[in-house]
Design a binder for these strands. Sequence first.
DNA 1: CAACAATATGAGCAACCCTCACATTTGCTA
DNA 2: TAGCAAATGTGAGGGTTGCTCATATTGTTG
Lengths: 218, 218
Amino acid sequence: MALDQTAPSPAPEDEGAMRKSPTQKRSRERVELILSSASRLIAERGSDTMRMSEVAELSGISIGSLYQYFPDKAAIIRTLAERYNAISRTCITDGLADVRTMADLQRAFSALIDEYYGIFLAEPVIRDIWSAMQADKALREIELEASRQNAILLTRALKRALPGENVDKLQASALLVMYFCECVMRLAISTGEPEGRALIEAYKRMAYRSFADAPDTP
Amino acid sequence: MALDQTAPSPAPEDEGAMRKSPTQKRSRERVELILSSASRLIAERGSDTMRMSEVAELSGISIGSLYQYFPDKAAIIRTLAERYNAISRTCITDGLADVRTMADLQRAFSALIDEYYGIFLAEPVIRDIWSAMQADKALREIELEASRQNAILLTRALKRALPGENVDKLQASALLVMYFCECVMRLAISTGEPEGRALIEAYKRMAYRSFADAPDTP
DNA sequence: CAACAATATGAGCAACCCTCACATTTGCTA
DNA sequence: TAGCAAATGTGAGGGTTGCTCATATTGTTG
């Protein structure tokens, strides 16, 4: 599950990030090549120190061509960030699809968080992209929106598991849990093992309590 | 409570951040002037777009002098970040000093979080410094360490409020709550009011549950 | 005042992102 | 195939920025 692979779905990414929408096959391959090179460089030394000249050289194209596909450096980071959000979305959609009961939900949620954390650990690119997202206002907005979307998915599963419960409460719980998800992943990565794993487990417990005991909002 | 004022305690900041330790009065005033200018510029347009030339001009000194006190741009951010951490530390130390019972703790914790959030809202500099901290690995380490220190303070209060409880459990709870504190502040700022306030309240409830019902670690 | 140390200065260097005038390739029609 | 226009590729160079360093200024001491 690498960030430099397009999802099988033919969703044309965010075209706004591109200077020209790559219609021809050759162009699309080049975009992938650029993103792949950028991924490698970011994984090695971070997005700050990634140089556009390096991306061009590693991709075997000129600087000028690079700027024909991406309007600026931030656009490359943004595209990678959106793919990263797509990964969490897929995780959650797949993981929660078959949830019917509260026991299902606990099992599924636990497995889902573990899988997500595993991806975080295995993909150094994601860690750095995350840092870049935190530093940039526009990217933070993208992340918040992704969390909100994920919260909708979680709310659906919660409704199936707790049919009688107040829907507003479920929504509030789901939103908090999903907002916190990214924070926990960052914390776990920052502290390193074994403390990271302990944090993930503590987060899970917090989430369970939150599901079972939705807040009585005033 | 501005970031560009030295704490009354004569702690000489992190001398490692300075090129020369400012021994003379005039020098120390200049350092304060630089930090004050940097604060203003960061508050206005963010640390990314803050230019060293602007800091020098606003301080009424030359670029060269600026680099006599701070080895690089990051050092200014770092010094501001450490002062920001000192603020949270003071908040928590003062807020939890008189806690004796669990009821005390709930009251004190609630007031403390509200105060801290108020500072966050009122000081745009802090918000941007926080962003810069997230983007920089060294600064993230500083933040984690600050959270750990704060967790120690919280653990002490917890011990007084729950004398019989297992100390390891209390420590684990305190650490999680303090780690999450920064995350919640960021989220609340990012989402804006009124959702931010709701997040803060949800966080408080989570913290209370965590205090009362420490995890049974395996 | 002289002589030396400490501090201040800002022109300029190197590194970076990005542009743009021009070269090359591709696709299409006759 | 020849010819041409549109699409795509190129990289030297412009404009900024963080930071250095030789020089000038200020302070201190005998």
